[in-house]
């Protein structure tokens, strides 16, 4: 690396961002009773919403149910969506609630999002190895997808869910805090730990010289 200054995180425009201009038109049409407009929205977001509910619940059946209930609730409450946020952000919040209900039902004593988080010395990374450029390109799409699903699944729920909303769904810190009923500092501390833990776990796959 020639400079200490890093470029901002390079986020590829999400399909939902590329087409966001017509998202509000589709929502308006769906609110006016155009069922095919709502079906278009479902088709656009079903994969992302299923990944979200799958990553939160870590259970295929619960993830399917949560996704289904999220779309049904979104349709049912469409008239109350006022467009203060993007439709997708609103849909994510509904899906998170459904997925959390499933997770809490299955693991009632395990899931507490607001418990104290240790921010002590153990956060300083132990393994410091360079990955080189474009480490993900060393894996086929399916293999990479399996790796990412596994490593995020190994995180404890409070960290997994905050990372999912903030860094995968790209909600703002404030939107993430509101969706999960957490304070902004609590979101930030969980996000930091999640990012560091994922970095450490991915190190075994991406470090330079890893035999692929």
């Amino acid at each position: 690396m020639s400079s200490s200054k890093l470029d901002p995180v390079a986020r590829r425009p999400l399909p939902s961002q590329v087409v966001k201009d017509d998202e509000s038109a589709l929502v308006a049409a769906a609110k006016a009773g155009d069922i095919s407009a709502f079906e278009t929205l479902v088709g656009r977001y079903e994969r992302k919403i299923f990944r979200l509910t799958q990553n939160i619940t870590q259970n295929r059946e619960d993830a399917e149910d949560a996704m289904q209930e999220a779309f049904l609730k979104a349709y049912e409450h469409l008239q109350s969506f006022e467009g203060n946020s993007r439709f997708y952000t609103w849909l994510v919040r509904i899906a998170v609630n459904q997925a959390l209900m499933k997770l809490r039902k299955r693991r009632p004593n395990v899931v507490s999002l607001d418990e104290e988080v240790n921010t002590g010395e153990d956060m300083v990374p132990r393994e410091v190895e360079d990955w080189g450029p474009s480490p993900a390109d060393r894996y086929a799409q399916t293999e990479l997808s399996e790796i990412l699903t596994k490593v995020i699944g190994d995180l404890d729920p409070p960290f997994r869910i905050v990372f999912q909303l903030r860094d995968i769904e790209e909600l703002s810190t404030e939107e993430t805090a509101e969706a999960l009923g957490l304070s902004v500092p609590a979101v930030k501390s969980r996000l930091l730990r999640a990012r560091l833990k994922l970095r450490q776990t991915l190190n075994q796959y991406f470090r330079r010289g890893e035999n692929k």
């Binding site: 690396m1 890093l6 995180v9 390079a10 986020r11 590829r12 994969r47 992302k48 299923f50 990944r51 190895e129 360079d130 990955w131 480490p135 993900a136 799409q141 990479l144 997808s145 990412l148 995020i152 990372f163 860094d167 995968i168 790209e170 990012r195 560091l196 994922l198 970095r199 991915l202 190190n203 991406f206």
Partner: peptide, 16 residues
């Protein structure tokens, strides 16, 4: 740098 790459890999990944 590797933390930044971690975020990029996740946020740029396609859902199955």
């Amino acid at each position: 740098d590797t933390c930044k790459q971690t975020i990029e890999i996740f946020c740029n990944s396609e859902p199955a």
